[in-house]
Measured scan of single mutants.
Amino acid sequence: IINNLKLIREKKKISQSELAALLEVSRQTINGIEKNKYNPSLQLALKIAYYLNTPLEDIFQW
């Protein structure tokens, strides 16, 4: 999986903590996703895309 979450999140000036709060997950979860240590569920990936107002395929590429 190619993961552009960190790049997109930083472009939008959103911290890991802010995104985690919006998604109701821990900051460690966001960190793990960004470091490719954790693959989000489809539901979480869709929520990330929604809150970042970015197409899912721009954030994650399988």
Rank of each mutant, 00 (worst) to 15 (best):
S41G: 10
Q43V: 13
L5H: 01
R27Q: 15
Y38T: 10
I8M: 07
K37D: 11
S15N: 06
P40E: 01
N36M: 12
E10I: 12
N3Q: 05
K37R: 13
I59V: 06
N39E: 13
S41P: 12
S17G: 13
T54K: 04
Q16H: 04
V25I: 12
K47A: 10
G32P: 01
K11E: 12
N4I: 05
L56A: 05
L56Y: 06
R9E: 02
S15D: 06
L46W: 07
Y50Q: 08
Q61N: 11
L19F: 07
N53L: 05
A20C: 04
I48S: 01
K11C: 09
L42A: 06
R27F: 09
K12P: 00
T54F: 05
I8L: 07
P40A: 06
R27T: 15
F60S: 00
P40N: 01
I59D: 01
E57N: 11
L22C: 10
G32D: 15
L23D: 00
K6H: 07
L5F: 02
I1K: 10
L56H: 03
A49S: 10
S17P: 06
K35N: 15
A49D: 00
T29I: 15
E24K: 15
L5A: 02
I30D: 00
T54A: 08
Y38L: 13
I8R: 03
W62V: 10
S17N: 13
N53P: 01
S17C: 11
S15T: 14
T29P: 01
N4F: 08
F60A: 00
K37V: 13
K13P: 03
Q43R: 13
K13S: 10
P55K: 09
S26T: 10
E57T: 11
S15M: 05
N3S: 06
I33M: 06
L42Y: 14
S17T: 11
L52R: 01
D58A: 09
S26L: 03
S17F: 13
A45S: 06
I14H: 03
L19S: 00
I2M: 12
N31K: 14
K47V: 03
K47S: 07
L7H: 13
E10C: 09
I30K: 00
L56E: 02
S17A: 14
I59Y: 02
K6F: 06
L7M: 13
N36D: 08
V25C: 07
N4P: 02
E57A: 11
I30V: 12
I2N: 11
L5P: 01
A49F: 03
N53H: 09
N36P: 02
N36Q: 13
N36E: 08
A21I: 11
L22Y: 15
K6A: 10
S26V: 03
T29M: 14
P40V: 11
F60E: 00
I59G: 00
Y38W: 13
V25N: 01
N39T: 15
N3K: 02
L7Q: 13
I2F: 12
